[in-house]
Simulated scan of single mutants.
Amino acid sequence: MVIPIHDVNPTRRTPYVTYALIAANFIVFLLTPGIAGSVAGQSDLSQLCHLQAFLDQYATVPRELIHDQLPHLVPTGEVGVGPHGAGCVLAPPDYHKSPPLSVFTAMFLHGSWLHLLGNMLFLLIFGNNIEDRLGRIRYALFYVACGYAATYGFAYLNATSGEPLIGASGAIAGVLGAYLVLYPRVRVWILVPFLLFLPLRLPAWIVLGFWFVLQAVYSSGGAVSAAGTVAYAAHVVGFVMGMLLAWPLKPGTSPPPEPGGTLFGRQARRSW
């Protein structure tokens, strides 16, 4: 696992769409009912019931998406006491859920600060250059298309699953795939945890290629991850989708010149 911190790849315009996506993800996370208790590690049943009710309405569920099997009973957010003790109250839904639309809403939901910050870090570092290359409108459409492809790909591979699928990582994986195609030789500063967070500057094709291989290995079951709830297959599909959509643009894209005298990707100050 590596942590990107900066890429040496100047842009020509302010990445307003990327900033807007990051802001939207943070706002939705902070407004998600019950997320405060989940983030703090508390076990308040009322908060968990509210969170579960919210996710059932706005998260993507593969079984609903592929087979259109909507549940007859869903959590209401209320706590009740039954024969087996306290639990979330179930009732017929008082809303109409559109599974295809839930793919879009799920792209702005995250389950923890670590989940959110990790996704937003990758989007901030690599999204600005893809937005710069595609233009704002095409970039926004590209982002959503990769998110949909990633979610549907994962859902088809897990068509009977009733677990909610959330997160922007499928769409962001598409951004990484496009970056690999368009800027493979651009230098990226990374931190390597197992080397005591030693900073290294490597070509994007090594950084992103390693990331993709790791996702593919995990998705195939060839390795065991501590984060067993991560939808690695969605990352793989989103990444490939991003590469395919960016490939026609490759002949017209050349890596920008690297600024002279850089230090961690920033212009170094001379003391003489």
Rank of each mutant, 00 (worst) to 15 (best):
F142Y: 04
G127C: 08
L117P: 08
L121M: 14
N128P: 08
I137F: 08
Y143G: 10
F108N: 08
L116N: 13
N129E: 12
R133T: 08
I137N: 07
R138A: 14
Y148G: 10
Y148T: 13
F108R: 04
M120Q: 15
S112W: 01
A140I: 06
G147D: 02
Y139E: 03
L124A: 10
F142R: 14
I130T: 14
Y139I: 02
G135P: 00
Y139L: 02
Y139V: 03
Y143M: 03
V144S: 11
A150F: 00
N119T: 14
L109K: 06
I137K: 11
A145C: 03
R133L: 06
L123R: 05
L117D: 08
Y148A: 09
R133V: 06
A140C: 12
F122N: 12
G135Q: 04
N129I: 04
Y143I: 03
E131M: 07
L121P: 06
M107D: 15
A145K: 01
Y139N: 02
I125T: 06
C146Y: 02
L141D: 15
N119F: 13
L114Q: 10
A140R: 06
G135S: 03
L124I: 09
A145I: 11
I125H: 14
R138V: 00
M107S: 15
W113P: 09
L116G: 13
F142S: 15
R136L: 00
L134I: 01
F108A: 07
L117K: 14
A150W: 00
M107Q: 05
L116R: 05
R136P: 04
G147P: 14
I130R: 09
G147E: 02
W113Y: 11
C146R: 01
H110N: 14
Y148K: 07
L117F: 10
L116P: 10
D132R: 03
F126N: 05
F126W: 04
V144W: 06
V144P: 15
H115L: 13
A145Y: 13
I125K: 04
N128W: 15
L109A: 15
L116F: 13
L124G: 07
A140N: 04
S112D: 02
W113A: 07
I125P: 13
F126R: 01
N128E: 13
C146Q: 07
F108T: 11
C146M: 12
L114P: 03
F122A: 14
M120G: 09
N129L: 04
A149I: 01
I130F: 07
L123V: 08
H110S: 13
F122K: 12
L134F: 01
N119K: 09
M120A: 11
G135W: 00
R133M: 05
L121V: 08
D132H: 04
I125Y: 11
N129W: 14
C146G: 12
F108V: 06
H115W: 01
C146S: 08
F108Y: 06
G147L: 09
Y148F: 04
R133P: 03
F122P: 09
G111S: 11
I125L: 12
